[in-house]
Nucleic acid binder design. Structure first.
Lengths: 190, 190
DNA sequence: ATTTTAGTGAACAGATTGTTCAATAACGTA
DNA sequence: TACGTTATTGAACAATCTGTTCACTAAAAT
């Protein structure tokens, strides 16, 4: 890809993320984005049909990056899927988040987080589906499979959201444990 | 409240809901709303500062209606909170939804459902907090209370979302059971 | 019957959107 | 280096949307 295109695209994404962390999506104008990105109006529309498409492509770039890296990461990540503990993939994701890869945290905290949590959850569902055998062992037999997958994804996303909203004081290991306790909740004293 | 005001307000809400079930929030204009509601432009702005405020007030009206009715419903609903089974309040909510009180289902299905699910969950959290003793019994002791409350609310909302998205083929009783199984998941065969 | 309040419709400035175009700058390649 | 190709620019543009104003009419409350 042309160096210029890449630079422009990156500048627009950065400007957009900056703005998203400060104000609501609906109140951001194309004018603001191009001013902050310092690109011409025509350039913006050469890259993105509308503001909505910009958001869509941002989400896809952010999440596909993380999830693809985990799936096809070859050397670096392969061990996760060879490991028996189903928790490790989640722990790994949490560690990714803690490192704040690609500044994704701002987007998950900000006023617009529903937009991003949806993408997060959808990607997670795909990942879990591919890893299904590991998780279906834990499924209460009365539950439909799609219900269970949805439940696991939603619980993980909510765990992350809770973590971020409460200042990320806990370690990834602790959150991973909370998540597993929520999924497989069993009263110890009984 | 003046009869005229109430009529106008209702007409705007109805028009807005109609539109929300057909297109995305961002793409709905005030012009469309007032045309469908058949009220003057100035009238709209006399009632709502902006389209965002309209959305906010709609959400509050819809959910406060349901949840207030459950809390302060006196005769009709009081038995729920005197009943020991913590599941009954959820079952009751599901029955409300199945009856599609105030056409809330369209809004939970539609393209904009994140907007409404957030309000749904927030109200649910308040309700659960007031009913906490019932639910904290089930909490694994290692989990923080706020984590647990969030988990229960989110799981219920996700159960409902799953139900609606899959065509609401199951009975409220079945969904209530799924929800409880997810929360207190225990493998029977063990 | 009178006063108060709500709705009307048109008109308005200002902002935003998405497009166009000719001119310029940066790119990749031979 | 010189070349043709491609991206960016800035300005200008019509079309749309927003939120406000105002004089007027209709409905409500007293």
């Amino acid at each position: 890809m042309d160096r210029r295109q890449k630079k422009t695209r990156e500048a627009i994404f950065n400007a957009f993320c900056d703005l998203l962390s400060k104000k609501h999506y609906n109140q951001i104008t194309v004018g603001e984005i191009i001013e902050r990105a310092d690109v011409g109006r025509a350039t913006f529309y050469a890259h993105f049909e509308t503001k909505d498409f910009l958001l869509k492509e941002l989400c896809e770039e952010l999440f596909c990056h993380i999830f693809d890296a985990m799936e096809e990461g070859g050397e670096r990540h392969k061990h996760i899927f060879e490991c028996n503990a189903p928790s490790s993939v989640f722990l790994h994701l949490l560690q990714h988040l803690q490192r704040n890869d690609r500044n994704i945290l701002h987007l998950l905290i900000c006023e617009n987080n529903e937009l991003f949590l949806k993408y997060f959850k959808d990607n997670l569902k795909l990942l879990i589906q591919k890893q299904l055998p590991r998780f279906s062992e834990k499924k209460p037999s009365a539950l439909p499979e799609s219900f269970w997958i949805n439940h696991i994804s939603a619980t993980f996303v909510e765990s992350v959201r809770w973590w971020i909203e409460n200042g990320m004081k806990e370690s990834p290991e602790t959150i991973s444990e909370y998540f597993l306790l929520a999924i497989i909740s069993r009263k110890e004293s009984q």
